[in-house]
Simulated scan of single mutants.
Amino acid sequence: MKRTVRQLADGREIIYFDERPDAPAREAVDTRDLPPVAATSEIRLDPLAGEWVALAAHRQTRTYKPPTDLCPLCPSRPGKPSEIPEADYDVVVFENRFPSFSEDVSGSPSTVDDMGLVPTAPGRGRCEVVCFTSDHDGSFATLSPQRVRTVVDAWADRTEALSIVEGVEQVFPFENRGEEIGVTLHHPHGQIYGYPFVTPKTRRMLEVARSYQEKHGRPVLGDVLAAERKSGTRVIAESEHWTAFVPPAARWPVHVLVVPRRQVPDIPALTSGERDDFARLYLDVLGRFDRLYDRPLPYIASWNQAPVRTERDLGWLHLELFSILRARDKLKYLAGSESGMGVWINDATPEQIADRLRAAA
Rank of each mutant, 00 (worst) to 15 (best):
A39C: 13
S82F: 02
G116L: 08
T150Q: 13
A209S: 15
C74Q: 01
A227K: 13
R229Q: 14
R312S: 05
H241I: 12
T111W: 02
R229I: 12
A359R: 08
R203P: 11
A360I: 02
R203V: 00
K230C: 07
I345G: 01
G336P: 12
G273H: 08
L317H: 06
P36R: 13
G190D: 05
T133W: 09
E207M: 01
L55T: 09
Y195L: 14
S163N: 05
F322W: 13
L117E: 15
I353F: 00
P188E: 04
L357S: 08
A227W: 09
R44K: 14
P145T: 01
A226N: 06
D46Y: 10
V183G: 01
W252G: 00
G50N: 04
D347S: 14
D329P: 07
L270K: 10
G125Q: 00
L321D: 06
I15F: 06
G182Q: 01
G107R: 14
D223F: 07
D104G: 04
G107C: 02
P196C: 11
V37M: 08
L48C: 11
R12Y: 01
A227Q: 15
A54G: 08
P200G: 06
G340E: 01
D114H: 15
N96Q: 00
E128T: 08
A244S: 13
A39Q: 09
A306F: 00
V246C: 02
T68R: 05
D290H: 09
R358K: 11
Q146P: 07
Y16Q: 06
V91C: 11
F245G: 08
G336Q: 03
D290L: 13
T150F: 10
S239A: 04
S134I: 01
S76K: 12
F94I: 05
L143S: 05
E240D: 12
L143N: 00
W252D: 12
L357K: 12
F245N: 02
A141V: 15
E179R: 12
E320D: 14
G340I: 00
H58D: 00
E214A: 14
G178L: 07
A250L: 07
S337W: 14
T120P: 03
F278C: 02
R204M: 07
N176F: 10
H187A: 03
N96I: 03
R59S: 04
D157G: 07
P109V: 04
I324P: 01
I181V: 15
P81S: 05
L283G: 08
R124V: 10
I236Q: 00
T349W: 03
V171L: 06
P99Y: 11
L257H: 14
W316P: 05
P36V: 04
R309I: 02
V308R: 09
V92P: 09
A161P: 13
R97M: 15
R251F: 09
K201E: 09
D329N: 09
T349Y: 10
S110M: 07
Y64F: 10
F278V: 00
V152N: 00
G125D: 03
G107D: 12
D284T: 11
A121E: 11
Y89K: 05
A23Q: 11
T133I: 13
E103F: 03
G190Q: 05
T68Y: 02
V285M: 13
A25R: 05
F278Y: 15
P173C: 02
P24R: 11
H318Y: 15
N96T: 09
Q170C: 14
